[in-house]
Design a binder for these strands. Structure first.
Length: 691
DNA sequence: ATAGGGTTAG
């Protein structure tokens, strides 16, 4: 093992080597022989052995890979290597075929264009090929003087360029293909990359480590770890040494699939094997743990980095990952601690650091702090960019301040920052939240006409908007429209639509959607269940709701407070107050803490069941446990007291509520006015509330 | 020329 280095750049596979492997495979040469061939190619055969345990839980072809890799070290004859390779190839081909057909659908809606740009890029690539064929130095120099902007290349442009390149003879060097695939992968069109790779493979363009790493990365993002691992077979076949990037990418893939243990195992296996992790490895692990909600593990890794040799000291990227994760979990003070720590260590924050912090404080409604941060960053010559502005737009929208959001949007345009799909989608959501569906639709249509590509997010936001307003038919129409445009509705889209059906009482349709989702093998998360459960309760389907809950309890999903709140609320709706109470008081034994919403639901239930003193007890308990009661809690309990003829206590609570800066909502007002007209409450109450 | 960081929906 020590004779090989993972960081060694792989040699270009020698055609005779590929021949040798292929013939060896066909003739069932002993694996000792193949191993020998790999070694002549400076490829470490142990590498494949070391990766084999990660392939062991995979379906048939991978099982074969596993045994094949084992026999590599035991120098036994494997069952049928040829079978394995053809299987793996076939699977890749099928995946790619599926990918390319969906890609064609996407193209159908036109757009793209940009021929002049295409030409200049083509010239650029030609120059690169010239360079790699050692033709002319002069054209290389001119390329360096006038570097074309690859960043302007759209997906469609990239694909046509790729196809043109495939028709050139002699075939261009693999570098050009890598550039295009890498670029399209950056644009997140992973399926398109896979289908390009299949075409190139068919024409026998020999990949290199870059190519295969790009492909692994694409499969990872498509949640197809199995295919990612099968690419290892390609490395083997072409005699290419997998490198540290390959491993980093595989680790990332495991995290995307939520397989933390596999990721950790791969990491320790590589360390054990003397393969040195680099800063990207640590970054990937830290990001992975943050994604899993384990900030503590992420910070521990940061500390571990500090103790490592100087080549992987913590950098701005790892600090940003953790700061952002802490902000997302509203642990903003902790984020600020890390922020000062990085500065004191001489690591300069960048636009991403500031954007994450701004997002964090905005979520807590700390507008002053956000403004301070904006000023601070600008004073350091770090300027807010598209993402920073989009967050500001989004936050304003979530606060219901769409007019202000619009003016931020205009400001950014003035500064030459073009709002994109995300910015406009946030704005659209802002209108949806206010129920201004006509305005939301206007933004949507404007996006379509201005060339901002509407995506699955945009559709889901709009569908959700219509569902909230109970305009289910419009939602259904959009749902079909998005599929027609080749945009794939995901669990969130389905859940929004399901909620819409529930809201208009079409519980059967909601259930049908749910079954469809299950049948597609989609990953159903707790929130999807919560929506259906809520719908069943609200449509008086107690028995079915309880059955669904039972099903849910049997599954290995981590049931969160949302699902229990829904259950408790549902039981209250059905008048089963005792049962609701049981669940409520059992929460802590399940390791769950009721939040303000849970308390409000239980308080409401207790009031409806006439147990007002218990309701009041819960309100006080909230304060002890520092779960702040919100305006909803106060309005709920005040209504409870009024309905139970406890006007004196109600008045006391109204005072308390006003002191805390909350006000009576429309329902409470209506109730008070009703009681006033019957001379049942003190008129002073009205003057108090009307302020 | 490839891999890691910040923005939108239930």
């Amino acid at each position: 093992m020590q004779n090989y280095h993972f960081g060694t750049p792989s040699l270009k596979p020698d055609p005779t080597f590929i021949h040798a492997v292929n013939n060896g495979v066909k003739s069932q040469a002993t694996w000792q022989t193949l191993r020998g061939i790999l070694v002549t190619q400076c490829v470490n055969p142990d590498f494949f052995l070391f990766l084999s345990p990660f392939c062991s839980s995979l379906p048939l072809p991978y099982v074969l890979l596993y045994s094949l890799l084992h026999s590599l070290s035991l120098s036994l004859s494997p069952p049928s290597p040829l079978f394995f390779f053809s299987q793996a190839l076939e699977m890749m081909r099928r995946a790619a075929a599926a990918a390319s057909s969906s890609y064609c659908n996407n193209r159908g809606r036109g757009g793209g264009g940009g021929m002049p740009r295409l030409h200049s890029i083509l010239v650029f690539f030609n120059n690169i090929f010239v360079y790699s064929f050692h033709y002319s130095q002069a054209s290389v120099a001119s390329t360096i003087r006038n570097p074309p902007k690859l960043t302007n290349l759209g997906v469609g442009d990239g694909v046509s360029l790729f196809n043109e390149m495939l028709q050139m003879r002699p075939l261009p060097c693999v570098v050009g293909f890598n550039q295009i695939m890498g670029h399209i992968a950056k644009l997140k069109h992973y399926q398109a990359v896979i289908s390009l790779y299949t075409q190139m493979d068919r024409l026998r363009v020999v990949p290199d480590a870059y190519t295969l790493n790009i492909i692994i990365n694409c499969f990872c993002h498509l949640n197809q770890m199995g295919f990612s691992l099968s690419v290892l077979g390609k490395f083997f076949k072409f005699g290419i040494q997998p490198n540290i990037t390959t491993l980093n990418t595989l680790i990332k893939g495991f995290f995307i699939e939520g397989k933390v243990s596999q990721a950790a195992l791969l990491f320790s296996a590589m360390v054990e094997r003397g393969c040195k992790p680099n800063d990207v490895t640590f970054g990937t692990l830290i990001k992975g743990y943050c994604m899993m909600g384990n900030n503590t593990a992420a910070i521990q890794l940061l500390r571990k980095m500090e103790q490592q040799s100087r080549d992987c000291k913590p950098n701005v990227v790892v600090y940003n990952i953790i700061i952002d994760s802490l902000c997302k979990d509203t642990l903003v003070p902790d984020a600020f601690k890390l922020f000062s720590e990085m500065i004191s260590r001489g690591i300069a924050p960048d636009v991403i650091t500031y954007t994450s912090l701004i997002h964090g404080v905005c979520k807590l409604g700390q507008w002053k702090e956000a403004t301070r941060l904006l000023n601070e960053m600008v004073s350091k010559d770090i300027f807010p960019n598209l993402v920073t502005f989009s967050i500001l737009v989004d936050t304003l929208c979530k606060e219901g301040m769409v007019v202000e959001a619009q003016s931020v949007l205009e400001l950014m345009i003035q500064r030459g920052i073009k709002p994109d799909t995300v910015t406009y989608s946030s704005l659209m959501d802002g209108y949806c939240l206010r129920g201004e569906m006509e305005k939301a639709k206007e933004v949507f249509d404007m996006m379509n006409s201005k060339g901002s590509v509407v995506n699955a997010y945009s559709y889901t936001i709009l569908i959700n908007g219509y569902c909230r307003c109970k305009r289910i038919n419009e939602a259904i129409r959009l749902f079909h429209e998005m599929s027609d445009r080749g945009l794939v509705p995901n669990t969130v889209t389905y859940t929004a639509l399901m909620d819409g059906f529930c809201k208009v009482g079409r519980i059967l349709d909601a259930q049908r959607l749910f079954s469809k989702l299950q049948a597609c093998g989609q990953v159903l998360d707790v929130q999807t269940y919560a929506v259906l459960l809520d719908g069943l309760f609200k449509n008086q389907q107690l028995a079915m709701a309880m059955e669904l809950f039972g099903e849910l309890e049997c599954m290995k999903l981590d049931l969160n407070i949302v699902i229990y709140s829904t259950l408790i609320e549902g039981l209250c709706i059905a008048g089963k107050f005792e049962s609701a109470k049981d669940h409520f008081y059992c929460l802590s034994s399940k390791g769950l803490e009721p939040d303000a919403r849970t308390y409000t639901i239980m308080i409401k239930g207790l009031c409806e069941g006439g147990l007002i003193s218990e309701a009041e007890k819960l309100l006080r308990e909230m304060e002890q446990k520092s779960v702040a009661p919100d305006d909803c809690t106060y309005n709920t309990i005040i209504r409870g007291f009024l309905n139970n003829d406890e006007t004196v206590k109600a008045v006391g609570l109204v005072h308390e509520m006003m002191d805390r800066g909350f006000s009576a909502d429309a329902w409470t007002m209506e109730l008070i006015i009703g009681l006033l007209s019957k001379d049942k409450v003190d008129p002073a109450l009205l003057s108090l509330i009307e302020k």
